[in-house]
Design a binder for these strands. Sequence first.
RNA 1: GGCCGAGUGGCGGAAUUGGCAGACGCUCUGGACUUAAAAUCCAGUGGGGGGUAACCCCCGUGCGGGUUCGAGUCCCGCCUCGGCUACCA
Length: 884
Amino acid sequence: MPRYNPSVIEPKWQTYWDQQQTFATPHVPHGEKLYALDMFPYPSGDGLHVGHPEGYTATDIVCRAARMQGKSVLHPMGFDAFGLPAEEHAIKTGEHPRVQTEKNIDTFRRQLKMLGFSYDWSRELATTDVEYVRWTQWIFLQLYDTWFDPVQQKGRPISQLPIPAEIAAAGESSAAAYRDEHRLAFQSEAPVNWCPALGTVLANEEIIDGKSERGDHPVERRPLRQWMLRITEYATRLEDDLELLDWPTGVKALQRNWIGRSTGAEVDFGLVGTGQRTRGRDVSEPRPTGFPRKPDENTLRVYTTRPDTLFGATYIVIAPEHPFVGKLTTENAANAVKVYCDQAAAKSDLDRTELAKEKTGVFSGSYAINPVNGAQIPIWIADYVLVSYGTGAIMAVPAHDQRDFEFAQQFGIPIKAVVDPGEQVSVADREEILAGARVFTKHGMAVNSGHFDGLPTRDFQQKITAWLAEKGVGAQAVNYKLRDWLFSRQRFWGEPFPILHQLDDKGEKTGQVRAVEANDLPVDLPHLDDFKPHGRPEPPLDKGPDDWLYPVIDGVRYKRETNTMPQWAGSCWYYLRFIDPTNSQALVDPALEKAWMPIDLYMGGSEHAVLHLLYARFWHKVLYDRGVVSTPEPFQKLVNQGMILGENNEKMSKSRGNVINPDDVVQEYGADSLRLYEMFMGPLEATKPWNMEGVNGVFNFLNRVWRMIVDENVQSLCPHAAICDDAPTDAQNRILHKTIKAVTGDIAKLSFNTAIARMMEFTNFFTKQDRRPRVVMESLVLLLSPFAPHISEELWHVLGNKETLAYEPWPTYNDTLLVEDEMEIPVQLNGKVRCKLIVPTDADKASIEQLAHQNPRVAELLAGKQIVKTIVVSSSLINFVVKG
RNA sequence: GGCCGAGUGGCGGAAUUGGCAGACGCUCUGGACUUAAAAUCCAGUGGGGGGUAACCCCCGUGCGGGUUCGAGUCCCGCCUCGGCUACCA
């Protein structure tokens, strides 16, 4: 009764692999190495969903095939285990987050093992492991100890930061403050996104439509002291180095877009009418000293990407948070401005987005002087200008910017066209544009721009930028959408910062901080009796016991930093720890790091296309600059597996009731069928719907393979009677070698669905053969083993082999065995297939043409027609172009 | 609004440099085996038309043009769906 029974053979081989440590990775690779990494999961309480095994199976196939091809393979798995759900569970139940987290990890580990992935489990880690936290904190100290040298474009030790003489002269505390200003990890008082429901501050990236990404709670803005990471310093390198990477172009585009590099010019506008006597500045008053690094108090600096439209600027807008708001507001306008700015401050991002249809703003009462023509234009305050981008102030050119146009129309501000669209639009549209009744944002030709008239936009931009620079009122400038990374959270279940705040005699913070010594790491989480958030922004760690909270070093009393790191922290570097997971002396042994990095294949969902990958690349570059790692980029090749939809073609979700549970599928069909089905559904990167009939289809295929090799009519497990030691026939060899070639190539292309189709064709052929040579069956089993490892091991065993097939040499193909003597090619008339022709495989063009004419059917088709031209494609087709 | 991706049978999907559209699987239909069913095996399965028949003809890869002996594939212009993103001057 040896029917194919996955529920017996799968656990059997999983136990075997475990006991034999089949997939233990050598410490140092010998020969060619492959580092294939899955984005590690967050161990949620729901367990694995069917999306996880998709990418995991793909990398597992690549790894298993690579081992058989003689490569040293590093294929580890771990858990991204800090984060909100465990903490929320703790708040509800009082159970420590670590307990819940470990339960969830146990479930995930069981499920992953059930699927037969060839991970080296001895390297398993969780970001919550105390020893792991130690090195996360260590990296933070590296960030804290690093400043970015803009000249070398490189992070360097803070001890090498040149201190300007005037600061050095002011004493060590000035120098210390100067250093703190330059560290990659620094504290800031900027307004942050405070989410009362979660009791935490969130990064911009964690807010969607003004609500928290997690939980969909409202978010408000508050000024708070936070830790920030200076990722913006690395913007240029993060963008440029994308070129080095074998990533999907879409993901590269997303990263570029997120970094958001834009080039333009900064331009200084002089101020008038601020009540005090200020000197206006115009064309006649160039600055002899050139464009200053920082504008003086009588100058408003704006950023524009369209300096060619300077002559069309009819007003200025500054952000409600701009430092000049108070200074520029006249007495008459004071009330209105105060009301407006208060409203803007209270607005959440949601409000700002929702009200996007209607622009709001208020006139400050002051005017600025346009440096190109001396025109005095009003200064408005409006929240469509962001204080955090550019200079927080813009020159508004309503004729050529959509937002400015809407604003000007709403407030009756003049609209002056300075770009002529010419032939690009209809005559009527052009007239409207030139009359200021319609907005035109593309390039064109300059008009109403003094002696620049007639210049195409691009030339004008160069000329005006040079002109501005010459007069000292402007300069070319680059801006990024990317902001510094808000790195602290007011939660319990995260890594504590290894930072101490010095306290004075009264127990107040002096403002001086010191890093915890690397030898004293890790800073472990303290015991807390109560996890409940109190609704104030002070972190839960403030409730930690005094002996943890207030260390004394050299007689000085300190208070620990009580913010914790965001969940991103642990996932920023886990790939390095897998290389050397138990090293207690270093984050990773440099020799091992050099041997295994970079990651050759990184597989995961496209939801991490921007943030995780950008943050990890940033940390990696800092570690690279500091000599900890040897490659400028961590993830050489990236692949996003597509989303798996429910059977109704909708996203899987509990509320839609269309969730497929891997446990159920494995119970009914086995892990091999689940793996095979997920690979057979369609292209790896495509979004595709689940279909249980399809699972049954691949299950049938595995049964057919089983019956091709195993004799089901006898009691014991032995080979099918058709299995023989004959040499394969030519026809059998052709199918075999065709299959080896196709499957090998398809695995390299990650085209697993077609590889499986080829093995199905093989099986369809050989189940009809009465003699099935053992060597041929063995080759098929080896080809199938990366996809369906359990059944393959079992069949390998049935065929008389004693050892695991995991390190058997991968089958090779012989091209000469593929060719047939004859082949059938189509005969076309005017490109339409009319009949088929049998020709020798090695026939040249002339003989194919000759054979075609000799063929009675072809002669019949050509009868009474004039042949204009004959096209022969060698070993492909023949096409007659005919008339009549 | 912006960026990216995709439209091929009843369904999931295949198709080197442009070269036989629909591989492979599912579904469905018919047949064999069986007391019967399941399982298995065999055959058929894009639409339409013609022939007793081996066969033959027409249409067909979202829509409309174009290039070419030949277009699912290349070019131009649209439509639809999905994902991401959104006042970044």
